[in-house]
Write a protein that binds this DNA or RNA. Structure first.
Lengths: 224, 224, 224, 224
DNA sequence: AATGAATGAGGGTTCATTCAT
DNA sequence: AATGAATGAACCCTCATTCAT
């Protein structure tokens, strides 16, 4: 209808900014919500960190609460799909696959600001119950599915001892999540490095330790 | 001044109530802070749940923030000492000791409302940095000390393989903490039991799984 | 339950103020809503005119809109009952009764701040449709009933010509209402006395003029 | 400056639109101001109802308040002149003239959206005192002049009894104005037709009723 | 000691107005 | 001329804190 106003690669900067605003606001909101909590974050802070005025925020999100939901929704989309691809392609021993998939996924999340989403959910889920169902469906279930599948395959192939898959999955994953949470709580309280260790090294050693308990005596940890 | 109100061994019940007020307020505050977060909890709610009026709260704590600190401080005291005693008395294999100490400590915490303190600290530590130092000194360090000691003793005795003590301690403990946090976040969002498992059983299996990876091939899991 | 807190004639001034607050707030709100309109009146203005702070207003009324409804509701109660009593007691000619009832009712309303309610309803009824039904039921219908009854009695007795009762009632009443509205709109714009006349005199002459048109040639205006 | 855009008798349609913008904006503003009140009407609503964007409104009127003044000013011009012409041409009895002039004028106003201006003035005159002087000079005074003149002529000719002209004028006119106001307040609150009558019929009967009281016994209501 | 009415600073949200395009 | 994104002052309402009783 109004082709002369359609955004295009050569659109004026005014138009390009508009397209980027929602993401800028979500980024600002995520960092502040994780930092201070939802209730303690003021909308002007979010706007200021996104480089706009308070009123502008409301051009894109109708309320602070909707902004929170947008933050959660957009960070949860497709965090799992990448791992699924890795699994599909893999052919070698399951132990190595587990280590690779978990460590790769975790490093991707831990290094990005998506790591804060775990803290955010822990903090806010009881005040906004919609989030719970969403998170379970989008993250918890597909994630457990994925890891559980690998563990089951290892058992079926005789690489792993016969164990409760559910238990193993949680023993593996909980510390990964915990480190993400830690990064944004005690870990962010400068000066006192509570854990006093390299998180990457820890995660790999943690997985290896569990694999040691998991492997049948004969099985190798990785392809020789 | 009012001798007829002087406290006595046979003081009237409303005198006894007075002595219990601080604890009642702390209990009310803890449950609400854990439930909704510090910022989203109103002081009238705390007072109401403690069965007093809003003004009364301020007779015992000078501000909402001081109330928070009192909540944290009183819940962290002497959660560790019990474990230390167990360790001192124990003589058998370290694997059994680890399982006993960890499971006993965890069950005590998980079943009480002290479990909420973990969520509370994760949520609020960045807004109240005093809490960080306090928590590290009172909980994290003595806890790691205690568990680390047992692991080290197992290595020294040849029961455990030579591993990074720090890593093992965190692999062991993080899921315990995580379950406490879960109880008060997703786990409290009625209806959807995300984990779908018995936490007690999980914790024992988790520890056993790690011990399997930890034990030297010859060592027994428990006293034969 | 708490007899020691029950308000009593000898209650402390603190208690007596509390009992008077709702009326003080309604009076303040009525005058301001009539003066500036509902939307253009700020809640702090209402509070200030009532001699309290902004927060106090919300101890008594949960929102500005509920305050408006309270204003309307309390001013409409029992404005009609007094007239009904006069009618019941009267025995003489209907013309005199009409003049007395209408002029008395009108003077009572015109001189009090209830006169502003007419303007308020005209102004706000479309934004708050609840008010319409309430006003029709509490004021319009009983009022028309009352006046219509007198007119009908006059016709039945042969004092008045046979006319459309409905029309007469409205011809009589509309200028009365109009003067009330005028008092709070153009009439309040100091300096320019648009009507340039004594409203009391006008109302009596207006009624008399209509009665002249109403009376059968033989009937007297009042008891001889 | 831009000769290619110079307006011409055969200007393109978007030029003609431009010329109509002020009127479209005034129409939109009038209907909304009457509906919701000045303060409760948002400028985007006015713009939307006029079919333009919010910014465009400010090309034609420098502020919301100036728009209000424009609305009032343009609706008040020349509502009276038509009546004046009728009076000048008339020769028959004054009673018929009064009925014709008043009913014709009233029907013209009541059926158009000019009827809303009465409500608008009642509602806003205290917030914008400029309007008061303007309205009195442009509408009230010439209107009273016109009607008063006819009444006076009737008295002079012996058609009407000797009465207070001022009173008669207001008794005649107030219900006419009131019906206009009613149309846009209670009358617009769908469903409950408070008056339950045909306004045209009422107005004619109202005037006739007053004329009955006004006429000397011998005078006819209209030319035989 | 206990109450709860009162306060007022502060936060979420709206909207008249501006201005780059 | 027209747009609509952006602004920020202002408004409604909340709630931590105080204090008279």
């Amino acid at each position: 209808m109004h082709p002369e106003h359609a955004p295009s690669p050569t659109a004026p900067s005014h138009q390009r900014r508009k397209a980027e605003r929602p993401q800028e606001l979500i980024d600002a909101a995520l960092s502040l919500f994780v930092e201070k909590g939802f209730a303690a974050t003021r909308t002007d802070e979010v706007a200021a960190r996104a480089g706009v005025s308070k009123g502008t925020l409301y051009l894109y999100y109708p309320s602070k609460e909707e902004l929170l939901k947008a933050v959660i929704a957009q960070r949860l989309s497709s965090q799992i799909t990448e791992g699924a691809r890795q699994v599909a392609e893999h052919t070698g021993p399951c132990a190595g696959l587990l280590l690779d998939v978990l460590a790769a996924w975790w490093e991707r999340v831990y290094d990005s600001d998506a790591s804060g989403v775990f803290k955010l959910i822990i903090t806010e889920v009881r005040n906004f119950p919609d989030i719970a169902a969403f998170y379970l469906r989008e993250v918890v279930e597909p994630g457990e599915q994925l890891i559980g599948q690998i563990v089951q395959r290892g058992i079926d192939r005789g690489e792993f001892r016969t164990v409760d898959v559910h238990v193993v999955v949680h023993s593996l994953v909980m510390p990964l999540v915990m480190l993400c949470v830690h990064k944004h709580s005690l870990g962010a309280c400068g000066g006192m490095d509570a854990l006093a260790m390299d998180p990457r090294r820890f995660i790999r050693q943690h997985i290896a330790l569990l694999l040691t308990g998991l492997l049948t005596p004969a099985a190798p940890l990785a392809t020789p």
